[in-house]
Simulated assay, not measured.
Amino acid sequence: MDLFEYQGKKFFSAYGIPTSEGDVTENVEEAVSIARRVGFPAVVKAQVQVGGRGKAGGIRLVGTEDEAREAASAILGMDIKGHLVRRVWIEHASDIAKEYYVSVTLDRGAKDHLIMVSSQGGVEIEEVAASNPDAIKRLHVNPIDGLKEAEAKKIVVEAAIDEAAQAGVVDVLLKLYRAYVEGDADLVEINPLILTTSGKVHALDAKVTLDDNAAFRHPEWDEFRATQELDGREKLAKEKHLNYIGLEGSVGIIANGAGLAMSTLDVVNQVGGKAANFLDLGGGAGADVMAAALEVINTDENVRSVLINVFGGITRCDQVAKGIVDALSRVDIKSPLVVRLDGTNAQEGRKILEDFKSEKVVVEATMIGAARRAVELAGKE
C-alpha cells in the first residue's frame, strides 16, 4: 500500500522523524487558512502517488493569502501523469541549505535490508544512479542484527554528507530504519532530506510503501486504506481477492505463483512484447479463480492477447484446463488466449484443451513459444 506524502509524514512523525509543519485539505479556502496558520512563505503541494509533481506545476511557493488561493485553485483537480489531484498539503516553506537522499528497503537478492544514502538529493534517485552511481552509498543490514549507530555514521560519512548535517542525518537514519522494521514497510524514502540554514535536518518529502501482509497488526492503517486510489482493474481484482498489478502493455498475464508470473513478464519483454499486468493466481486455478482472472483482464481495453502460463506442482494441469474451459463459458473473452501448461498432468490438461483449440484458444508447449505467440497475436489488428 503506497501512502500519500502527508500520510508518509504522519507515519514518520510517529517514529520521531522531524517533518515540516503543515496540514492537508480538499478545499481551496481551507488551504488558505492552513497557509495562514503555518505562516508565509508556504508551499502548496499536490498529493498524488507519482513523481514529477514539481515539473507538472503541482508544487508552488506562495507568499500571500491570494497566492495561496490561486495555487490551491490551480492544483486541485489537476491531472499529473494520469493522477487526479484531490488533496493538497500546505506547509511552511523551509530555508534549504543542502538536500540529501536516504531510504531503506529490502534487497531480495542479498536477503538483507538495504540502506541507501546520497548527498545528491532533490532529484529522482534513478537520475543520480544513471549520471553518477558512485554518489549513492549502499549498506546491507542483517535483519537479526539491525542497524548500529556506528554503521549509520560510517555510511553517512562515506556518502559525503556535510559535517554540519552528519549528526542529524545519522539520527534520522536510525529512526527511519526503526520505522521501516517496526512499521512493517516495504520502502521508506526521504527525498529530499534537508539541512536548513539554521542547521536543522528534517524530511521535506515522504515516500512510504507498507506491506499489506502485515495489515492485521496495524488497525491504524484503515485511515490510509480509505484514501487508496485504485484503477478499475485493480479495484475489481481486489474485490475478487486476486494478486494483480496493472501495467501498460498489451499482453495480459495469468500465472500461478509470483515467481512464475514475474518470469512470464520478463519472457514477454524478451521476445519484444509488453505485459499489461501482473496476475498471480496463487495455489488455486479452478474455474472460479480462472473466471475471475479473465474477467479482470477483460476489463483492460489495451489487452490484445492473454498468456496463461501454469506450472503444475500441487496444482494439477488437468484441473487448470477444466477451469479454463469452464471460465470460457462464463466470460465473453475479447482477446485470444495462449495457454502453456507444464508439470503435473500437463499432457492430460493439453488433451482437455484440444477440443477447444481455435483462433481464440491457442496451446503452446513451451514458455518461450507461448510468449512469442501471445506477442504476435497482440500485434495483429
Rank of each mutant, 00 (worst) to 15 (best):
residue 321 A to E: 07
residue 79 D to T: 12
residue 39 G to C: 06
residue 87 R to W: 14
residue 366 T to D: 11
residue 289 V to S: 11
residue 290 M to L: 08
residue 235 K to S: 14
residue 232 G to F: 14
residue 301 E to G: 13
residue 146 G to Q: 09
residue 170 V to E: 05
residue 91 E to W: 15
residue 312 G to V: 00
residue 205 D to C: 03
residue 24 V to G: 05
residue 204 L to M: 01
residue 230 L to Y: 13
residue 158 E to I: 01
residue 366 T to S: 13
residue 64 T to S: 08
residue 189 E to R: 13
residue 174 L to S: 00
residue 250 S to C: 13
residue 367 M to C: 09
residue 325 V to Q: 00
residue 197 T to S: 10
residue 156 V to E: 00
residue 375 V to C: 07
residue 252 G to S: 02
residue 256 N to L: 04
residue 236 L to M: 11
residue 375 V to I: 08
residue 112 D to R: 15
residue 292 A to L: 13
residue 337 L to T: 06
residue 68 A to P: 07
residue 56 A to C: 09
residue 326 D to R: 05
residue 63 G to S: 06
residue 356 F to N: 11
residue 301 E to I: 12
residue 137 K to V: 11
residue 184 D to V: 13
residue 212 D to V: 04
residue 297 I to M: 13
residue 15 Y to V: 02
residue 71 A to Q: 01
residue 30 E to P: 09
residue 176 L to W: 00
residue 117 V to F: 06
residue 73 S to Y: 13
residue 130 A to E: 14
residue 113 H to M: 12
residue 83 H to I: 06
residue 225 R to E: 10
residue 104 V to R: 11
residue 57 G to Y: 10
residue 249 G to K: 08
residue 67 E to F: 00
residue 277 N to Y: 06
residue 124 E to C: 11
residue 170 V to C: 05
residue 86 R to Y: 11
residue 16 G to C: 00
residue 285 A to T: 08
residue 270 Q to C: 14
residue 236 L to G: 09
residue 363 V to Y: 02
residue 263 S to K: 05
residue 259 G to R: 04
